[in-house]
């Protein structure tokens, strides 16, 4: 009779099928011990590595999460273009990406996001004294954008000579060498750069589109997203204004602070 029962059990499993999808790791386990976080390493005000010290708003967010959730952050420099790629790798060298990473519907097909933790628009930066002041002024001009950024896709709807580079640092070098006429990316990043360099200026009034920064996660991690979103809500309520003022003193918080009550819903796992 015992044999019959085993046959019955086995047959039932075969009949009803098994849900073989690998379960998502427990978020508290995933974010424990040393947690590698992908960040930019050359953005003043956001994430800058100088003399062995990390600083900036994104770093402050990473440190705050570490204290709140109980892990040790290990910052791993990645380029803008690498943000998606590292999160998609099976053997990813990072567990999270906090790197001015704009949430988009298209990117959500490949990774998950928790956020937004900041809203912004695309802006334009030139050398001080440049005559560029309106979108019409950049028609036909050479504008440097960062590979893999949303700025690469959207540049004011103008007909320009787009000059992509791997890093923003490289774009600024080309601007200073007068190889390009302007640099375009998120305005709050440009303001961070310009605040540390007197020869650079952000063109006032030139804002386009909407960027909403999120924490990048590997795909299909709804529980991790909920876990981080709950923490982000507390960050926005308790720390956001102070950290923004501390690391981005030249920028106005304005409508860049998200409403902590309406962060994006987390994407359900896809079968």
């Amino acid at each position: 009779m015992r044999r019959t029962a085993w046959v019955a059990l086995f047959a039932c499993l075969a009949l009803t099928g098994c849900n073989a999808r690998t379960p998502e790791p427990e978020p508290a386990d995933y974010l424990s011990g040393t947690v590698p976080i992908g960040v930019n390493s050359d953005l003043p005000g956001w994430s800058l590595y100088r003399n062995g010290v990390w600083s900036g708003f994104d770093i402050a967010l990473g440190n705050w999460l570490a204290g709140e959730l109980g892990f040790t952050p290990q910052y791993v420099p990645i380029t803008t273009d690498e943000r998606l790629k590292v999160l998609k790798r099976e053997d990813s060298p990072v567990k999270l990406v906090i790197s001015n990473f704009s949430i988009t519907d298209v990117r959500r097909d490949e990774v998950d996001f928790a956020g937004p933790y900041l809203s912004d628009a695309q802006g334009l930066m030139t050398l001080t004294g440049s005559p560029i002041g309106t979108p019409a002024d950049i028609e036909g001009r050479a504008v440097c954008v960062v590979l893999g950024s949303t700025g690469e896709t959207r540049i004011f709807g103008a007909k320009i000579n787009s000059r992509p580079e791997n890093t923003l640092d490289r774009c600024v070098q080309r601007l200073r060498a007068r190889e390009v006429d302007a640099v375009s990316t998120d305005q709050v990043i440009l303001e961070g750069l310009a605040s540390y360099a007197s020869d650079l200026r952000v063109v006032p009034g030139m804002r386009v589109g909407s960027e909403r920064y999120g924490i990048g996660l590997p795909n299909n991690r709804p529980e991790l997203c909920e876990y981080l979103s709950a923490a982000l809500t507390r960050f926005v309520d308790e720390e956001w204004t102070r950290k923004f003022g501390e690391y981005l003193p030249a920028s106005v918080p304005g409508d860049r602070k998200p409403n902590s009550r309406v962060l994006d819903p987390c994407e359900p796992a896809t079968p």
């Binding site: 519907d105 909407s210 309406v262």
Partner: peptide, 13 residues
């Protein structure tokens, strides 16, 4: 909902 362009965080929120 499905997006019509490459930019924007529209569908989920």
């Amino acid at each position: 909902l499905s997006p019509t362009g490459d930019l924007g965080d529209c569908v989920l929120p």
